[in-house]
Write a protein that binds this DNA or RNA. Structure first.
Lengths: 338, 338
DNA sequence: CTGTTAGCGCCTTCAG
DNA sequence: CTGAAGGCGCTAACAG
């Protein structure tokens, strides 16, 4: 039903390949301005739209890159997707987002699907690191450019975009120390098998020691990476912890968790930052617009987006990029009085 | 480089069409269990993945539906996308999300792109209603099932999912009246040419009259549909309005605006709900987790998702569905003292 | 510039 | 079950 290239060529009175080379702006087309106009006019008149399927099948390129994220409802990932999308738009590529919904099985399913799509490139924020070797490396060997976002060790043939949080974490804890905090708790998400979590925990705990916080019995709260889960976990903590044992500040593994925890605090009658201070990670756009704005360890989303796209589409990309995070102080942390 | 159907057939020692009919589970395949096993084994061994492009080109079906939303960073739309995605996963369809970024031009561009993709169906949350006739109807005539979400008049050949806000709005205003509010302001987004806005404004203003609010000089604040814009617009209002002239409650066209406005209120030293009450529309998941939880007029996202997908994929779908909203009262509204 | 031809990978039909 | 053949819509290389 939709018009085909053949129809355009016929209407314009030219050969099919002529129409093709004109519409695609190929430079080997010595077509006169007159015939070009005829072809464009014919295409416009018919409302011709080239069929991506046929074109991609024939060229072997789709001009589409895939993005696999754990949870699109997390503002961090929707912001990341937006930045990557912006960068791709500039390069005239399309983006297909796959949301694994924090589910390992779905992540595998998505990756299997990826093969069918024949994307030109793939950007992955993995929830399981097992997939790097089991799925991503094979994909790369088959010719799909792959870039992975996360603080895991570099894997050959896969691009990597990392964020060095060390300095920013250090800064954040130092600031808490200056504000008089002695006990700092951690709110963490994810499974033990996520290496990104393990390393982050380690860094947090190192910071606890370094800044002479009371780390004899560290307060670590675990939850899933959702608002609901963080809220429930933190409420549970507050219900089962005597006030003197409660840390006066919490560092949360991402902003979403911090928001959930702050809500639980509010429900328990605790005021932020008077009674409890919070720091998140990620610095989602929302954070500075919360009624009590959230301090956060900011990751440079736009730079990351540019870099990961470059890894996938550029000729000689840097295979391993590491950015540094910055600590952004806002209202959610305050001084200890007394 | 990736294995093709031919390779599988060869390895299994069968004809290509035999392999095809077996792998696709066609029932006209009288293949013996033995050969079936051989084929499956061969496919697995080679890591065969059918090429969607080739398959779709030949069958004319892509098993993909497109979703066009104004702003993926708005939690309302990411939640909507998630619900629609869930429903599509159940039906073994894929979802491609296009984010028009609140830009009319990009919306047009996306729609033009849509033709190329050859989606089996398209779900649209339009920002301009002009596209219904200019783009969507033609698309539908070409055979793509189209479902539009929004409170616009029904258009022939396009499915429609609407939400009747009247009763919930009425309820919300009635509640504000009971709480002693006399002046209620409106925070609205969008351009004048969006009919959805016009009708919503009208309903809001009708409600003002009905509940005997002071509507002589209604306080209506306009902004874009972003956190930043709402925040700026509301801050501007607070700076230029004498306290006695300020409404004691605001109804915002969506939750995101309410969050931005509440932040501006906080920065001006106003407490919610003591000094100012807020009601949003949409009831995004985040709303109940805000430090001061947000009252909102809730739209039944999951039902809407099911309905819109049904309109696109089912045999004899209901062409026009209208759900009703419900008012959810939370902490962001309070009584006027004095 | 034309017209033809081949091919991308798959599905489908039809005679054997 | 086999094997061949046609087609999906487009690109690309060829001789004229």
């Amino acid at each position: 039903m939709p018009p085909k290239l053949k129809d355009v060529a016929k209407l314009a009175g030219v050969a099919v390949n002529t129409a093709s080379s004109i519409l695609n702006g190929r430079k080997d087309s010595w077509a006169s301005v007159a015939t070009k106009d005829k072809v464009f006019a014919a295409a416009k008149k018919l409302g011709y739209t080239p069929d991506r399927l046929a074109r991609s099948l024939s060229t072997g390129k789709t001009r589409v890159v895939g993005l696999i994220v754990p949870n699109l409802s997390d503002p961090f990932f929707s912001a990341l997707a937006t930045e990557i999308g912006n960068e791709l738009i500039r390069r005239d590529y399309d983006l297909v987002i796959e949301d694994t919904r924090l589910d390992y099985q779905r992540e595998i399913l998505c990756l299997d699907q990826i093969n069918h799509w024949r994307f030109d490139g793939l950007i992955v924020v993995p929830i399981s690191l097992d997939i790097l070797n089991s799925h991503l490396v094979p994909l790369a060997k088959r010719g799909t450019a792959v870039s992975v976002l996360g603080n895991h060790p570099k894997v050959a043939s896969l691009g990597r975009i990392g964020v060095d949080l060390d300095q920013a974490i250090d800064e954040a804890f130092a600031r808490l120390a200056v504000l008089g905090h002695r006990r700092v708790g951690l709110l963490l998400h994810g499974q033990a098998r996520q290496q990104s979590k393990i390393s982050r925990v380690t860094k947090f705990e190192q910071a606890l020691y370094k800044h002479h916080f009371d780390a004899t019995k560290p307060c670590v709260v675990n939850c899933e990476s959702t608002l609901e889960s963080a809220h429930a976990a933190f409420r549970n903590l507050l219900e089962h912890t005597a006030a003197p044992d409660l840390p006066t500040a919490f560092v949360c593994m991402n902003d979403l968790l911090a928001i959930g925890a702050m809500r639980a605090a509010a429900e328990a009658g605790l005021a932020v930052p008077r009674d409890l201070s919070f720091i998140g990670v990620g610095n989602v756009p929302l954070s500075r617009f919360l009624p009590v704005s959230l301090s956060s360890i900011a990751e440079p989303l736009e730079k990351m987006a540019r870099a990961t796209v470059a890894q996938i589409l550029d000729e000689s990309p840097v295979e391993d990029v590491e950015f540094s995070a910055t600590f952004v102080e806002r209202e959610s942390i305050g001084a200890i009085n007394g």
